[in-house]
Design a protein around this nucleic acid. Structure first.
Lengths: 342, 342
DNA sequence: CTGAAAGCGCTTACAG
DNA sequence: CTGAAAGCGCTTACAG
């Protein structure tokens, strides 16, 4: 029989008689035939692959997200190929290029910077849908799935303020080039919005200098130790710290621990992400639960819808967060903070 | 000029004059040309992709390993495509099939079961090198990168025995079908070897019933709670627990905590893997440091060497582990265990 | 229902 | 140094 006929049954397209079909299947099984997906993709123009570029696969935030995306992808018959940018713009650029080269059917990326978008425009021009994850870039005109970062930070900060805290710090891992901190110029929209929310609560509460204790650059343990030490050496040091993600949170926790400070008696803290470690420390840590799996799933579903050309308005999808209250925030009484630290 | 010439400069092969080269490059840049890697792979027979099938990407063990593999791959000019088996044989089979279909240049897989290997033989027959990760299957005749699981378990068990413990438990997440426990039939070689090591120490120390407290099936929190409860309801319950991985370790920790037991006064424990959470608990947990990143890197390098057809004997590469002693194992004095639990 | 041809976008010899 | 042809393994119309 002809190759075309065999191809029809193996490829599952066209029409073939039952008898021949059986013969082909038998032969294919005997020869351990597996279709060459590469060739198939070349003809059909679809690779069946979704490309993902995340900041750091070792970060629980991203690995959970990846599982969400993968589950959505698998359900729709897609596979995923994952790249790590390490939150470096250059790595992100080449990852995107590579994935375009592999002719993925669509891309999900966590942009390291929201102010450098040429490489992201390429993907649209290459005819592939793109959905942004965790961070949004309105100018790009593509879908984005994020948390409700502003509201989350507001809830966390408000919780601390209501507990009586007057000096609150926000600590993030974001790399910063210059010393000056201009909120509007924070290039990661998630961090920017969190800081905005944080600052708005402090302003609302009539606290002075809301930006005073906002610190970026806690990218590793030594850096974090330095950040914390500087924070606490202040004349009226913060009594509560909001950590921008669970990695930062863990580092802050370790810093505090190594300084011999006890939580929440000496200092209070809240961390983003309901990570493993937050529930087994003493005390357990109050966290912002981000529902990352849902975020990933939503992003995956959205991308699939785009690939399948379902008509949809470009949107920013926000997944709501909630505060999981544990025991890391002290209630501070009467006149000013109770502390015995310096 | 001809397509062939343009292809030569874009593809970086053959010889082209400098002048023409510049023209082509300029035109390519203007048109935002990206080579179609699919087509390239079809012609060359190389996809530049390494396939990875892991048990669970959310498990820190695997995400660290994936980073090791990815780093090795990237250094050699390969990209990775990751699949999750969830430790399910069926999912693993289809992942392997899929990756073969994608014509990856080689595969690294963490076999869910070491006693079901047909699908793994396929990859060799499809002409692709395979390296096993974390678990070894000698019959398959392919490279494997593992920890020194036997020695690691021996070191951990010995540490406990030397601290005076006489009743030691081993808890793992492995799924088991029947109730009976036959070490030789544990289908995950890493777990089997750890149990062997564990048992050998108990035997050597002249302790009765070395298998008595070996428990599998701690696959989630409720299961683990049940396992722990059963263990402790024994007439002479274990005074020390060795957890087979960091997920099990965390669950065991939480179980113990929820029972109101304090570590190490009421009960001691050691966990495999130097995971995040193990250093911030009270007390910090003594762990088996598995150097997973190195394992991943080694596996990646080995696979690359195979892809590049460097002649090498088939080997099992073992990455040594070490015990990180913290404070979760109590020294038990004089006559029998000191405990006040039931 | 089945066959023969063209094409996907590259690379690889083979000529000129 | 450059061009024209063949081929990688599929799918997609188009005939029969």
């Amino acid at each position: 029989m002809s190759k075309a006929t065999a191809a029809r049954v193996l490829g599952g397209y066209g029409v073939v008689s039952g008898k021949i079909k059986d013969q082909v299947m038998a032969a294919a099984a005997a020869l351990e035939y597996r279709p060459n997906e590469l060739a198939r993709s070349m003809s059909t123009g679809r690779s069946g692959i979704i490309g993902i570029v995340v900041g750091d696969i070792e970060n629980a935030f991203f690995s959970l997200a990846v599982r969400g995306i993968s589950d959505a992808a698998r359900l729709a018959g897609f596979n995923v190929i994952i790249s790590n940018s390490g939150e470096k713009l250059d790595a992100e650029k080449s990852a995107v290029d590579l994935l375009i080269g592999k002719r993925v059917d669509g891309l999900i990326v966590t942009p390291a910077r929201c102010d450098s978008i040429d490489h992201l425009r390429h993907v649209g021009r290459a005819g592939m849908p793109l959905v942004l994850f965790d961070r949004s870039i309105p100018e790009l005109g593509v879908d984005a799935v994020t948390g409700d970062d502003r509201e989350a930070a507001i809830a966390a900060a408000r919780f601390m303020v209501e507990a009586g805290h007057r000096h609150l710090a926000y600590v993030s891992a974001m790399d910063v080039e210059d010393g000056g901190l201009d909120i509007a110029r924070i290039s990661n929209s998630a961090v920017r919005e969190r800081v905005e929310g944080f600052v708005s609560v402090l302003t609302e509460a009539g606290l002075p200098n809301p930006l005073h204790y906002v610190r970026l650059g806690a990218t590793n343990q030594p850096q974090t130790d330095a950040v914390i030490k500087r924070l606490l050496s202040n004349s009226s040091p913060p009594t509560a710290i909001l950590a921008s993600d669970s990695l930062v949170g863990l580092r802050v926790f370790k810093s505090l621990q190594s300084l011999g400070l006890s939580i929440p008696d000496d200092i209070s803290m809240i961390s983003f992400l309901d990570a493993d470690w937050t529930s087994v420390t003493v005390p357990p840590i109050t966290v912002v639960d981000q529902r990352v799996y849902e975020m990933g799933k939503l992003a995956g579903e959205r991308l699939v819808a785009r690939i399948e050309q379902i008509p949809l308005a470009v949107e920013r999808l926000r997944v709501s967060t909630s505060l999981v209250i544990r025991s890391s925030v002290a209630r501070i009484g009467g006149l000013g903070p109770k502390r015995d630290v310096n």
